[in-house]
Simulated assay, not measured.
Amino acid sequence: MSHTMRKEENALHDNELGRVIPCNELDWSDPFTWLKLAMVDLTRAPLVTLFYGIIFTLIPMGIVYLVSLTENHLVIAPALVCFMLLGPFLAAGLYDASWEFGKGRKPSLWHSIKAIHRNSVHEWAFAVLLLVIMIFWLRIASLIHAFYPPFISNDFSELIPFLVIGSGVGALLAMFVFTISAFTQPILIERKVDLMTAVLSSINAVWSNKLVMILWAAIIFVGVLIGFLTNFIAFIVIMPLLGFATWHGYLDTITTKRKRNFM
C-alpha cells in the first residue's frame, strides 16, 4: 500500500518534550485493509489469539462480578472504561505476533509475552500513564454519580443530566486516550524511543489523519459494543482482531527513515 509522505504537514513538531516521527497520509479504505490483514494473522496464530482473547474476556467479566458484589451497579461502566483504557498496553503481545509474521517467522506465545520487556522502562511508563488516566476517570465518575437521582419517575426525566454529563465526559476522555495511545505502544515495541516521542508521534498521526482515524475509532467502538452485548464472549475474537489490525495500522501510518526489510 503506497502513501504520500507529508512531513511538511505534520500537526506537531519536535520540541523540548520529544521529537515527532512523521506520518503518512491515510486513505478511507485503509482501516478495512488493516482488518483484512489482521484476520490473516488471527487465523495463522490461533494459540496467541486464544490466549489474549481469553484475557480480554475474563478481565471485564471479573470486573462486573466484583462490582456486583458491592451492589452498586452504577460503577460497572466506569470500571469497564478503565479496562478499555489499559487495552493498548495489554495488546503488546498481539503486536509482537504480527511483527513476527512480518519478519517471516512463526510467533510463539512466550515471545509475545516477553514483548513488554523490549522497551520496558517506557512501556511501563505508558502503563502508569494509562493508570493515572484510569484513576482520574474513576474520580470524575464518582463526582458525576452525584447527578444520579435518589429515585426515578416513570418518564426518567431526572436521569437526563446524569446521562448527558456522564456520556459527554466519557466521550471526551475516550477521544483523548485514543489520540495519545493509537500508535504509542507499537512505536515503543518496534523502536528504542522515549515515551513522549511515542505519544507525540501518535497524537500527530491521529491529528494529521483526523477523518480516517475517526472512522478507525468508530470501528473499534462497534467492536467493543458487540463485545458488551455478548457479555464479553465476542472479545475472544474481537480484541485480538483489533490488536493485530492496530499493528498493521501503525506500519501503514508511522514512517521510517529506511524501508522495513520485513514488510
Rank of each mutant, 00 (worst) to 15 (best):
S98P: 04
K7D: 14
L225C: 06
P240G: 03
F89D: 02
I203T: 10
I55W: 09
G87W: 12
A146W: 14
W28L: 15
S120W: 13
I214R: 11
T230V: 07
R118P: 00
I54E: 05
F51S: 05
I226V: 14
L35Y: 08
M134K: 03
M196D: 01
F262P: 00
V40K: 12
P149E: 15
K106M: 04
F244C: 05
D155Q: 14
V48S: 03
S98D: 01
M263Q: 11
A115M: 04
I189F: 15
I55Q: 08
G249P: 02
V81A: 08
E8V: 04
A174H: 13
R139V: 07
P161Y: 09
H117T: 07
E8N: 13
R118Y: 11
I203W: 09
K106L: 03
I152P: 02
F32V: 07
V132I: 15
L195M: 13
Y148H: 09
H111Y: 04
L86S: 09
A198P: 05
I236Y: 06
N15G: 15
L173A: 10
H73L: 13
Y250S: 02
I59P: 01
L241C: 08
I152A: 06
L129S: 09
L211C: 00
I144P: 00
H122M: 02
I214F: 15
A174D: 10
T70F: 12
K192F: 01
R258K: 12
I55F: 13
L251P: 00
P240L: 05
S2W: 07
T179K: 06
